[in-house]
Design a protein around this nucleic acid. Structure first.
Lengths: 194, 194
DNA sequence: TATTTTTAATTGACTGCTCAATCAATAAAA
DNA sequence: TTTTATTGATTGAGCAGTCAATTAAAAATA
């Protein structure tokens, strides 16, 4: 029963369904059928709107990157001093919207994809470079020359905590992750002040 | 040309080939053909010695876990005080044998597999629990009640640094990773002493 | 307003390919 | 002669991608 103007709605639904399907089956294990079923449409429709599986997965990755950028930007406008800006980025990384099991594991699946897929690697590199540049900028007044290394450490720890959070066996909470990250930053700031 | 006693040799060769093939194609993208070709044998032989693709990949995972356990144990025997023992674990994590691009990305592929594969999750959980227990034990005299959180933080950061090292676009070095980790530990120890 | 035409949404059936797994056949060592 | 190593050929399943057919809404026309 065709209602017109479905294109953007279906695309959105399929991308959301893709995130969940990736969580269940893994990035390469997932089929167009899995995703379409979850979105309540036929596999043919997914092809109709995205042209190929690659395109759908690529759109899904851009969706995740976009969501994170939005969450971070929203928190950064309220943060005035450097320390608050660093904390805004940490919080955005573990905000519930970003941090559902499905979102986390889809995100990590794209990390893995980037190891052997140039296109994915390019998108991810932009995100990571921007994240580190932001951290570096705000850390400079706090730890001076230690800023680049600390920025890399924070970025790595965020991803490591995500990785562990994605493993159901470990059942780690976002709050705990945030605490560990803040301890890390506090420790380094304390050393820098001496 | 059959020479007898090939079984253990072929199995070893196939496992090594699997690590490299996973690095190139990803865990789910890899085929028995890829692995067999790299090992210089026919796909049928890979099936002959492992029975199934799942079994070969599972053997590959156990191989990686075993190699790390060996590297860590070797370093731990020389380390006498707690701080040296912590450092032994950090060093083992970034030793060249452990840290080739192929080994790193195969390792991470198994992390991802564990998200939706119970058998893989069980193996990995054992490794992670043991790693954290070791860290906790050696950190206790250094930071007291802060030991559990710090152990989790170190374990997460190790994996985060591995993840970043596996991304070719970032080209991070093992030495840098080790430096960042040591800064983290030093910072927390400094805070604990005050 | 009533009728026809166009356009968008949607699917079932189909195609072709890739790949894991099987098996029977061969070859060499013991 | 038996045992082990090895492979080419084959099978069968699953899946991405295509296409023609169907339905209903919207637009155009009478």
């Amino acid at each position: 029963m065709p209602k017109r103007g479905m294109q953007p709605i279906r695309r959105q639904e399929l991308v959301i369904a893709a995130v969940e399907a990736i969580h269940e089956r893994g990035l390469n294990g997932v089929t167009m059928g899995d995703i379409a079923k979850r979105a309540g449409v036929s596999p043919a429709l997914a092809h109709h709107y995205f042209g190929s599986k690659d395109e759908l997965l690529s759109a899904t990755m851009r969706h995740l990157l976009g969501e994170f950028a939005f969450a971070a930007r929203r928190r950064l406008v309220d943060a005035k001093d450097p320390r608050a800006r660093v904390d805004a980025i940490l919080e955005a990384s573990f905000a519930p919207e970003q941090f559902s099991p499905a979102v986390t594991s889809a995100w990590l699946a794209f990390y893995m994809q980037s190891i052997h897929d140039k296109a994915a690697a390019r998108l991810l590199a932009i995100y990571l470079k921007r994240l580190e540049a932001n951290l570096r900028h705000d850390l400079r007044p706090l730890v001076g020359d230690g800023a680049p290394a600390l920025a890399r450490g924070i970025a790595a720890m965020i991803d490591g905590l995500w990785l562990h959070a994605a493993l159901p066996t470990l059942h780690r909470s976002p709050g705990e992750a945030l605490g560990i990250l803040r301890d890390y930053v506090d420790g380094r700031l304390a050393v820098a002040r001496t």
